[in-house]
Nucleic acid binder design. Structure first.
Length: 697
RNA sequence: GACCACUUAGCUCAGUGGUAGAGCGCUGCAUUCACAUUGCAGAUGUCGGGGGUUCAAAUCCCUCAGUGGUCACCA
């Protein structure tokens, strides 16, 4: 044995061996009970950072269950990540002095496709380097034709069940990125603005009513002024006619309970096309929806001489004009929160747009029930609160995106009878209603979460014959807590809808990996750590162990070089224990266990360790398992027992071998490479520690 | 506004009712011994503040403060 553990050689050797032997496939235990984890498909638009290495948790579970004899499947994949990827790609274009507007739809799509293919290769190699025992033969990509087919099928079924509808409603629109978003993709940030108090004159010339607004520039879209019917100040003027300033349009004062008496003057301008609450009030009072701001972010012709300006610029100009007319009573400093694009940070405009929506109420009810009844369990449990609260208050989900990268929605509009035709992807020849053959396909693509929300069954229905029947519902969905709502909750809703079964029985949520200073890793901060750098510096086993050891599972942790070093030292310790037992084995070693009380005791403690590790893993207390292993192997076994047998070495040899082999097996899910290397050098049965029998089973 | 998590040794963190723990760091000693990526020994904390329950509280309850995060959003 080498004096120094040569990690990179050994890691490459065993990964290749495992893969060639087919050990990553569930067929290695053909008769075992199924145990399934679907890898959350990483975005195929960038290399993995060290946070992705937290998926080691899934490898630990899969290796553990595989050793217990389960037919364990860990299914890998990658996500086209619609808007995210297009955004990243546009940044690339920007560096080359280009933009998305320089290409037609098909060309842009193809460019992004090639970009993604390249990144997917990088990502796969990174997963290999970390030792992940995923079944590569079942690798899927969210844009694989068979996956797309499943997603289209679900869309069509939802449409036919009346759970998907098309509606012209206010959506969250980023005029910079040129697309709408779901509610979850809007970030609200605090902003200092002015609250303007503006006089709207009565048409009969008897005076005016003062309204308060932060957005005077949308005044051209006003279709009423509303007051609270219980507001004593305004009882007498409800129903009166006003002249909308800067126009000669007449609008009325209406009463609506949703108006807060205590805010501003208690009177509010109603602009149904540009504010969510105004939209509702407008809808319920049959008010006209007048669009002032266009999808290019500029004011439209209705804004007269302000047309063509951006809202901020127009705001100042409108206020100036109103001021000259003596209609601005005052302007107060005002701190409020405005919706911004989660990606570019620019203000989100609520705009009227025809989009596809999912009526989520019936889906969310079932998703809530699945967790309430315990059919699905969430670890750590405290996330249940977040899950329930979101699903209980969820609004219909806008799944249309005005980008090119993604699955184009399989819906065609008939120009003649104005009906939508939805298919499973095949192009309809003519309208089934009116036989018209002039059909126009919706240019929008699906929200990426609509497709990834179907990932568990879409993958298993398109890998191998019988996979879905055998491996669905899956056992564990393990991911970072930040996509519990974006992804996990939606998988539950769509999974139950499409298959009648929950997509997974347990949700296991890990924490965030922060940079060494405890800051969030982000490209803009330039503090992203590539997982390969860490693997090369400390070894894959140490990198894996460092993520599990010493921090309670589910909590955030800063990447810690001291901890990585400690775990690298631990691999060194293991290597030297191995050398002591294997390389320095006495010629006259006994071939039976001795009855020495120390030997008996260490065997007993090893068996206790097996129970402890198994229990911890069953409860998803990974740090407990890792801490116990570290403490026992180093401090109980090496420091104490191993030292104590040096003067009766021959007698103790069988015990040394047995205990060490057991420790390696228990440690294997955490540190697969070094455990395999050492296990192979000890007397063993079977081809690999990977498929050795778990000590406590 | 609501919810969630966190506050323990110099630093990073375990520890959910029974005499305070780990890793790193620190102090002293050891070294042809499997391992200096080592071993042995040691120092270090009124467990965020206050109150309560209990024979017993870092741990359970209440409250206050701070930190991080999430959701909802009133012009």
């Amino acid at each position: 044995m080498d004096k120094i553990y040569k990690q990179s050689e050994i890691e490459a050797k065993w990964y290749k061996f495992w893969e060639e032997q087919g050990f990553f496939k569930p067929e290695v235990n053909p008769d075992g009970e199924p145990y399934t984890i679907i890898l959350p498909p990483p975005n195929a638009n960038a290399p993995l950072h060290f946070g992705h290495a937290m998926y080691v948790i899934e490898d630990i579970l899969i290796r553990y269950k595989r050793m217990q004899g389960y037919s364990a499947l860990w299914l890998p994949g990658s996500d086209h990540a619609g808007f995210e990827t297009q955004y990243v790609f546009e940044k690339h274009l920007e560096k080359q002095g280009k933009s998305r507007f320089d290409y037609d739809r098909d060309t842009l799509y193809k460019l992004i496709w090639d970009f993604v293919q390249e990144n997917t290769g990088t990502m796969e190699n990174q997963l290999r380097r970390l030792g992940y025992s995923v079944d590569w033969s079942r690798m899927k990509f969210t844009l694989d034709p068979d996956i797309v087919k499943v997603v289209y099928k679900t869309f069509k079924r939802l449409f036919e069940d009346g759970l998907i509808y098309r509606s012209n409603r206010l959506v969250n629109y980023c005029t910079f990125n040129g697309t709408s978003f779901s509610d979850l993709e809007v970030n609200y940030v605090e902003k200092q603005d002015k609250l303007y108090f503006i006089k709207y004159p009565f048409a009969d010339g008897t005076g005016s009513i003062t309204i308060a607004t932060t957005r005077p520039e949308t005044l051209f879209g006003d279709s009423a002024v509303a007051v609270n019917p219980e507001d004593s100040r305004y009882q007498d003027i409800i129903g009166q006619t006003l002249i909308l300033p800067l126009t000669n349009r007449h609008i009325q004062i209406i009463a609506d309970l949703r108006v807060e008496k205590d805010f501003g003057t208690g009177a509010v301008k109603i602009t149904p096309a540009h504010d969510p609450l105004d939209y509702e009030i407008g809808r319920d009072n049959n008010l006209e929806q007048i669009t002032v701001i266009g999808f290019d972010g500029k004011l439209k012709e209705v804004a007269q001489k302000f047309a063509g300006m951006y809202p901020k610029q127009a705001r100042d100009a409108v206020v100036e004009e109103l001021n000259q007319l003596g209609l601005v009573e005052k302007a107060e400093d005002y701190t409020h929160r405005i919706g911004t694009c989660y990606k570019c940070g620019k203000p989100i405009e609520p705009l009227l747009l025809e989009q596809w929506f999912i009526d989520v109420k019936s889906l969310s009810r079932k998703a809530i029930k699945a967790v309430k009844t315990g059919e699905i369990k969430i670890y750590p449990k405290n996330w249940e609160t977040t899950y329930f609260r979101w699903l209980e208050n969820i609004k219909d989900w806008n799944i249309s995106r005005q980008i090119v990268w993604g699955m184009q929605i399989p819906a065609w509009f008939c120009n003649k009878c104005s009906e939508w035709i939805v298919t499973e992807g095949e192009v309809p020849e003519k309208c089934p209603n009116c036989q018209n053959s002039s059909l126009e396909r919706d240019t929008d693509v699906f929200d990426t979460w609509f497709s990834s929300g179907q990932w568990p069954y879409a993958t298993l229905q398109s890998t191998k014959e019988g996979d879905f029947e055998k491996f669905y519902p899956t056992s564990v969905m393990e991911t970072m807590y930040d996509i519990l709502l974006f992804w996990v909750a939606r998988m539950i809703m769509l999974g139950i809808y499409a298959t009648g079964k929950v997509p997974f029985k347990n949700i296991v949520l890990h924490g965030k990996v922060l940079d060494p200073l405890g800051q969030k890793m982000s490209k803009s901060k330039g503090n992203v750590v590539n997982s390969i750098e860490i693997v090369e510096q400390y070894g894959a086993d140490a990198a894996r162990m460092a993520l599990v050891y010493g921090t309670a599972f589910g909590h955030d942790q800063a990447l810690s070089h001291p901890k990585l070093q400690a775990m690298r030292n631990f691999t060194n310790k293991l290597w030297n224990i191995g050398r002591f037992i294997i390389e320095f084995k006495p010629e006259d070693s006994a071939n039976k266990f001795s009855f020495h009380s120390d030997d008996q005791e260490i065997i007993k403690k090893t068996q206790e360790l097996s129970v402890k590790v198994s229990t911890a893993l069953d409860q998803y207390r990974f740090h407990d398992a890792a801490d116990s292993l570290y403490e026992f192997i180093w401090h109980q076994f090496a420091d104490k027992y191993l030292e104590s047998v040096k003067n009766r070495r021959s007698e103790a040899q069988p015990t040394l071998e047995y205990v060490f082999k057991t420790c390696l097996e228990l440690l294997h899910p955490f540190m697969p490479f070094i455990t395999e290397e050492l296990w192979q050098k000890l007397p063993h049965q079977g081809e690999s520690i990977m498929i050795a029998k778990w000590p406590n089973s």
